[in-house]
Design a protein around this nucleic acid. Structure first.
Length: 131
DNA sequence: CTATTGACGTATG
DNA sequence: GCATACGCCAATA
C-alpha cells in the first residue's frame, strides 16, 4: 500500500507557491526527512531530487530552518550536505547536538563529517521509489 | 518593486 | 583541493 509512496512530485505541483501554508515545500521535505531510518543519513540534494526539484537543494535547507517549530520531531540531524558534512549543526539548540544525536544512533562523526557516509547514505528517491 | 542571503550542488579554472 | 560563478526559489529588509 503505497500510502507511504506519496506522490511528492505531484503534490509539489499542486502546491501553490506563496499561496498557503498547508502543504508547502516544507511539508514535503519533512515527510521525507521523517522517513529516514535511524542510523542513516541523507543529503539535501537527495531530498530535493526526491521532490523533483533537484536543482533547488537550497530550499530543502531552508525548509529545515523551520523544522524546529514543526510538529513532533523532524530528524534534521540526519540531513547533511553532499560531503557528509554537518553544515547545519550550528542551527540546533547547540552546535554539538547534531553530532551527539548522530553518534547516539551509531553514526560516527569525525571533524564534523559523517564516517562512511556512502554506507550511511539513505537515498529517498530509491527507498521511497520516487522517480 | 529590487537587493541580499541562505542548513546546497554543479560546473569551471 | 580551493576560488569563483551560476542556478534554484523562498524569506526578509
Amino acid at each position: 500500500m503505497p500510502s507511504k509512496n506519496i506522490p511528492l512530485r505531484e503534490k509539489l505541483k499542486t502546491v501553490t507557491p506563496s499561496g498557503k501554508k498547508d502543504e508547502s515545500f516544507f511539508e514535503l521535505v519533512f515527510d521525507v526527512v521523517m522517513e529516514i531510518p535511524k542510523g542513516r543519513v541523507t543529503s539535501y540534494g537527495a531530498i530535493a531530487a526526491a521532490l523533483g526539484t533537484r536543482s533547488s537543494s537550497r530550499m530543502v535547507g531552508w525548509a529545515m530552518n523551520g523544522s524546529h517549530r514543526v510538529r513532533p520531531k523532524v530528524p534534521a540531524h540526519r540531513v547533511v550536505n553532499r560531503q557528509g558534512l554537518l553544515t547545519g549543526k550550528m542551527h540546533f539548540e547547540y552546535p554539538d547536538q547534531m553530532q551527539e544525536l548522530l553518534e547516539k544512533e551509531g553514526v560516527q562523526i569525525v571533524d564534523d563529517k559523517v564516517v562512511d557516509f556512502a554506507k550511511k547514505f539513505w537515498d529517498p528517491v530509491k527507498e521511497l521509489g520516487l522517480e
